[in-house]
């Protein structure tokens, strides 16, 4: 398990390889559909993502006294942000994108160019994800985007995942899709 600590160093991020298991400690901000659309519409980003981490996630958050508590925070499917992500990576300086299912070739190219990796969180494992995210530090765009789509700010400790797309241009998803198709053809030819 490779430990990644904020601020995420470009050289360390670039050295990661698809398949590496990582543990992330530091600020993690959620952002999904409305956030990406907002960015694409030319609005300024109120969150500092430089050398930081973006999480495709719509967490279950409940009011806890004056603050908030996170109950469940598994990843949401990332492909929906494909049209926006290359520009977001270029502009924001984000180093780690956490999500589910991977992203397209244009995003992979942007990751290679700017030094960013995609970390696959475990789909469905909402309880451990919530535990690692620890507590809600703050929230942006709550009024504009609603609770499920707002940018929630967490201070994660040991959030685990697997590097599925690295900054060398390798996507584990593409590799596995290809090799499994080859294997299937092989089995069926028998």
């Amino acid at each position: 398990m490779i430990e990644l600590k904020y601020p995420f160093d470009e050289n360390q991020i670039r050295a990661l390889k698809a398949g590496d298991a990582v543990s992330i400690t530091g600020p993690v901000h959620t952002g999904r559909d409305k956030f990406h659309k907002w960015f694409a519409d030319g609005n300024p980003i109120a969150v500092d993502f430089r050398d930081g981490a973006l999480y495709h996630c719509g967490p279950v958050i409940v009011k806890d006294g004056e603050g908030w508590a996170v109950k469940a925070a598994g990843p949401t499917t990332s492909v929906r942000e494909n049209p926006y992500e290359p520009a977001f990576i270029a502009k924001s300086g984000v180093r780690i994108i956490i999500g589910k299912g991977g992203m397209d070739a244009a995003t992979l190219a942007a990751m290679k160019k700017h030094g960013c990796v995609y970390v696959q969180a475990v789909g469905g494992a909402a309880a451990v994800a919530a535990k690692a995210l620890q507590k809600v530090v703050g929230v942006s765009y709550l009024k504009e985007f609603g609770a499920a789509e707002a940018c929630w700010h967490f201070d994660a400790v040991g959030f685990t995942g697997v590097v599925a797309m690295d900054a060398h241009g390798t996507s584990l998803f593409a590799k596995v899709a290809e090799s499994s198709k080859r294997k299937l053809d092989e089995i069926l030819a028998k």
Partner: peptide, 24 residues
């Protein structure tokens, strides 16, 4: 192995705290 370990940890945690093991 990392994914499966996370899943097993998640199941133990959800059972102990009686919270949904998946948010969906």
């Amino acid at each position: 192995a990392t994914v499966l370990k996370t899943i097993l940890d998640n199941c133990a945690l959800a059972r102990r705290e009686q919270t949904p093991l998946c948010q969906d």
